[in-house]
Simulated assay, not measured.
Amino acid sequence: MAEIKTRPVDTDVHEFIRTFANTEQKIADSFTLLKLMEEITGYQPVMWGPSIIGFGSYHYKSERSRQEGDWPLAGFSPRKAAISLYVYAGAPGQDEMLKELGKYKMGKACIYVKKLADIRQDVLIRLIQSSVDYLRKKYS
Rank of each mutant, 00 (worst) to 15 (best):
E96H: 08
Y139G: 03
T6V: 15
I4D: 13
K114N: 05
R64N: 09
K26N: 02
R126V: 00
A74V: 12
D70Y: 04
Y88N: 14
Q94H: 08
P45G: 05
R126E: 09
S77C: 09
E68P: 01
W48I: 04
G56R: 03
E96V: 03
C110T: 15
S65D: 10
I53K: 06
L135F: 05
D29C: 03
L101T: 00
D70N: 14
A117S: 14
E38D: 08
K105Q: 15
G102D: 03
R7H: 10
P92A: 13
L85D: 12
Q94T: 07
K137N: 12
G49C: 07
A28Q: 11
R79K: 15
A109Y: 06
E100M: 11
L73D: 12
K138G: 07
F55S: 06
K115E: 11
G49T: 05
D29E: 04
K108Y: 07
G90F: 10
I111C: 05
F55C: 05
Q67R: 13
T19M: 03
G69Q: 11
G42A: 05
L135H: 05
G93Y: 09
P8V: 07
E39F: 01
A2I: 13
H14S: 12
L135R: 09
K115D: 07
L36M: 15
S65L: 08
R18Q: 11
S51V: 07
G54A: 05
Y139T: 06
T41R: 07
V113C: 02
I53A: 03
Y60M: 09
G54E: 07
F31L: 06
S51E: 08
L73M: 13
K114A: 02
D12F: 10
S57L: 07
Q25F: 03
T19Q: 10
A74H: 03
Y86M: 13
M47G: 04
Q25S: 09
G42I: 04
K80D: 13
E24K: 10
E96F: 03
I128Q: 02
Y58H: 09
W71A: 15
L135N: 09
W48F: 08
T32V: 10
Q121Y: 01
M47L: 08
K61Y: 03
D12E: 13
R126L: 01
S140C: 02
S84H: 14
L98M: 11
L135M: 12
E15F: 08
I40T: 05
V87F: 01
K103F: 00
E96A: 14
I4V: 15
K99N: 09
